[in-house]
């Protein structure tokens, strides 16, 4: 299935900003993190189509996954 992955802040270093990538059916957010060589504890926030999700969340073809390290401001 095709997933658009968007990376932010330090996750962009040596990776990319946005890419459409192929993943096996029923891949989870955690599987995609592994494929991107991002350790689970590095993850701050994952959003699918603008909604917060957990690493166990299973993706569906055509979704947009946004991944942020632990960041903040205000």
């Amino acid at each position: 299935m095709k997933i658009t992955v968007k990376l932010f802040a330090g996750f962009r270093d040596n990776r990319f900003k946005m890419a459409e990538q192929d993943f096996p059916e029923a891949a989870t957010v955690g599987d995609i993190l592994t494929a991107l060589n991002i350790d689970g504890p590095e993850l701050g926030v994952a959003l699918i189509d603008g909604r917060h999700v957990l690493p166990e969340q299973v993706l569906v073809d055509g979704q947009i996954l946004s991944l942020f390290p632990k960041v903040g401001g205000g």
Partner: peptide, 19 residues
């Protein structure tokens, strides 16, 4: 780490993604 590198403005993209 996050605040020293990107400043508070790192929030633009995360608020945008969250709508």
């Amino acid at each position: 780490e996050g605040l020293p590198i990107y400043g508070t403005n790192v929030l633009i993209n995360i608020l945008n993604e969250a709508g």
